[in-house]
Design a protein around this nucleic acid. Structure first.
Lengths: 241, 241
DNA sequence: GTCTATACATGGATAGAC
DNA sequence: GTCTATCCATGTATAGAC
């Protein structure tokens, strides 16, 4: 099936990030009523795609379903994003940008407890507010991440390595217990994202249809406490043993 | 609109769980050389399917790919499992059985630290030894779990509720710190399964192709320590505050 | 029971009218 | 830029010879 899959086109970094991330008609620069309409339509399609890809995965999602969800004829979707894969990759790029900036609270001179607490809470909030984005990312990674290999190995690794250095310094300075910083991140990601990616399982076990705002509050409290304790930190911001 | 997209196929509950869970030819009972060959072939197909479904998801997996991986002609796969969905559901049933029995170490009279430690280690070992099974399950849940709703809401919930009662008692008896038992399980599942489901992300961040035995050892140590600390427990088995 | 050839449906992508 | 009609590849499932 895969033929020359995906990874191949990893190189072609399309126009970096934001704006009109896909098509080829590429109008002048970015202003004007036409460009505005284009951006609006792209946004609509991307929002629809986020939901459909999250629910059905890449192959399970159909352009027809995405078009329907965006209230557009199927051909329009192909007009703005020439192929299904191009649309998928645009969507992934948007999602990865969100991912990268979530750990901003972890800085050299921050208080460890406050920084980790803020990070955990931001991640839980993300699971609550952008469950579809989280699921698209999860789906991609579970299936081997061929479309985001470059991102994982370079941008994400670099970002995480930076945060790991900070945590190592905190440990060296005795501001928190010695824990493996990489695995600490793996645990934070897993424990927080599970409320988006595995929501239906958590909800079923709790005997409800879907998680409530109260559940997310409890989730944030629980994960925060777990992470802080595992680092020998107290919620207030003081360092323990 | 949204005719009966993917999600709809939840209703058809097939034969409950165990044995040869699929075909319709259904020979006599279970003995004889024919039956043995049948079981062997079914096993081969299921093993191949586990890998293919894990890598590509339900819709992304093709019967041709499964047949190829099992070194059988495509028609044989359909002979043993009439439809792709029947094969998928058989596979899921096998996987769910594994899932249910993993928490066996958590019993009324066990030592909390030892019981939780054993559970965490069993889960990490499962991620290491059966990554494809874990991914198939993860994929199903991420996509809404329509094929396993009944399992999640009944069997799994009942099993977890039982374990939750035990943990509540441990807390009441002062044998561990007060934590929300449900969220404790969510964290354990997430933090351990991430080493199978999100392996490629962890590997990329660690700068390698795939996780090594040493990584899994570190992972188990890390998650064990985190869970025990979050419950106010010491690795040895003694209870802390 | 095994396998080759094939029927039939779905879905990605495009042509070409508006 | 928008949309309808259509092309064509892929993939599930089966018929029917061995």
């Amino acid at each position: 099936m895969a033929k020359n899959s995906a990874v191949s086109m990893a190189a072609s970094n399309l126009e970096s990030v934001s704006s009109s991330a896909s098509g080829q008609p590429a109008p002048r620069k970015s202003a004007g009523p036409r460009a505005a309409a284009r951006r609006a339509n792209e946004k609509r399609i991307l929002a629809a795609a986020e939901e459909v890809f999250a629910l059905a995965g890449f192959t399970g999602a159909t352009t027809a379903a995405i078009a329907r969800r965006a209230s557009l004829p199927k051909a329009n979707v192909h007009y703005y994003f020439r192929t299904k894969k191009a649309l998928y990759r645009s969507l992934l790029n948007n999602i990865l940008d969100l991912w990268l900036n979530e750990a901003d609270s972890i800085t050299e001179d921050a208080d460890p407890a406050e920084a980790l607490s803020a990070y955990v809470r931001a991640k839980v909030a993300y699971s609550q507010n952008r469950p579809f984005a989280s699921k698209v990312f999860a789906n991609e990674v579970v299936h081997g991440g061929s479309q985001i290999r470059d991102y994982l190995e370079n941008q994400l690794k670099a970002r995480v390595d930076g945060k790991v250095s900070i945590i190592r310094r905190w440990i060296a300075e005795g501001r928190m217990s010695p824990v493996d910083p990489y695995h600490l991140f793996f645990s934070i990601w897993a424990a927080t994202q599970t409320y988006a990616d595995f929501e239906c399982q958590a909800a079923a076990v709790l005997g409800k249809d879907k998680l409530t705002a109260g559940d997310y509050r409890k989730a944030a409290d629980h994960v925060e406490a777990m992470i802080l304790k595992s680092c020998g930190l107290e919620p207030g911001g003081a360092a323990g043993s």
